[in-house]
Design a protein around this nucleic acid. Structure first.
Lengths: 123, 123, 123, 123
DNA sequence: GTGGTCTAGACCACG
DNA sequence: GTGGTCTAGACCACC
């Protein structure tokens, strides 16, 4: 399992980890029941604080995507996220699309970019 | 100009205002050179502190979208002046699309939702 | 007497007027005892508020550079500014030079730019 | 890291902090990647409110000179990352030089003062 | 009447 | 322990 942290990314580190793992699950690279790396190991690999990884795992557990077993590591519990409200799904999409439009991209171009990202998500 | 604040939204209030105004600019409802409401008035309308609105306006000014003139209110400076890096444009989109996929939406369904949001963005 | 207001300049409008008139006096284009345009006329010419020009004239009068006679317009009182403290003279210079250095200009290049501006100031 | 606030200075406090830190970066006293003091500590040292320091840090971040990491303090991001327009660089210099000339300094004397300040800027 | 600065203090988010 | 957000209110600067 490969995860990258980008120092220049404005998202907090724990959020980057959450997003990357979700992406791996969505892509099918992390299957249900498969093992996640131990918190301490991932923290060492990424050169970040132990608590930061723990926060990320806690968030993923709260969303029902992984199951953390005390002393036995974490596994992927489900490849389907908990029900999110319409707002939680739409607001981030709306914001992302608005930025693309304000950047000067025509509607057709935005659709092309979305298609590109979608294909990269589930190849 | 109508803006809504959602208490249940996880984004900070000033960010919601920023996003809403960007949306209004992208939609063409706020034209270049048009006046934005005074910070204190918008704050009263939204039932929040005026400093919160001022923070939103400062952010929009830093991005070059509005011009705040001391003593003379704020106007829309440019509807297409956002210099965002590829990362700043793609990362939020990627996260939003991942959420939709994890929510169980098929690729075609995601494209439909995106199209719907895009049409709502530039009617 | 020609003065230009730049909308994109971050300085307040009244300050731009003050700076421009000081520059004209320093250059010798406005000699002692010469007439300044009436407040209302300058405001009309520049397309700005009457009070803004009045504020600029008040500032220049406070510094002893112009004399405002009620109902008789303003004249250049002196081509030498009131004594400013060392801080008032040095701090703006220091800030301006720091910006040039941070912009990547070598010391010699900064001196060249300063020489250029100085020559433009008293030709 | 030593910063001084001058009550008699007309610049707002947060701006004085911004200018002082820029100066320290330009002088090479604050090297890239080095830590800035925590906002609350610097505020206590200067005897001001922490929000005022936070405003200064936010401004420096917006200009790309420092990177503020939520929960992990701020570091110097780049000692030469200022993208200022020609106007933003020249106007303050022009104003500062005009003041020196109006104070009665001959052109040669102004050049001497500028040289003095420049040497103090990068020792 | 417009926005800007600063303070004081509470509570939250991140590492 | 770090920075972020928000509020409340005072006073100032600009048009």
């Amino acid at each position: 399992m490969h995860i990258t942290i980008d120092e220049t990314d404005s998202r907090p580190i724990y959020q980057q980890i959450v997003d990357e793992i979700k992406r791996l699950i969505a892509r099918g690279e992390l299957l249900e029941q498969s093992q996640l790396p131990p918190v301490r190991q991932l923290a060492t690999d990424l050169g970040i604080n132990f608590n930061t990884v723990a926060t990320a795992y806690r968030e993923l557990q709260a969303e029902g995507l992984i199951a953390v077993r005390h002393g036995a590591g974490a596994i992927v519990a489900s490849s389907k996220a908990n029900k999110k409200s319409r707002l939680e799904l739409r607001a981030p999409l709306r914001t992302a699309l608005t930025q693309l439009v304000l950047a000067g991209h025509a509607r057709s171009e935005v659709m092309r970019i979305v298609g590109e990202e979608l294909r990269a998500l589930s190849p």
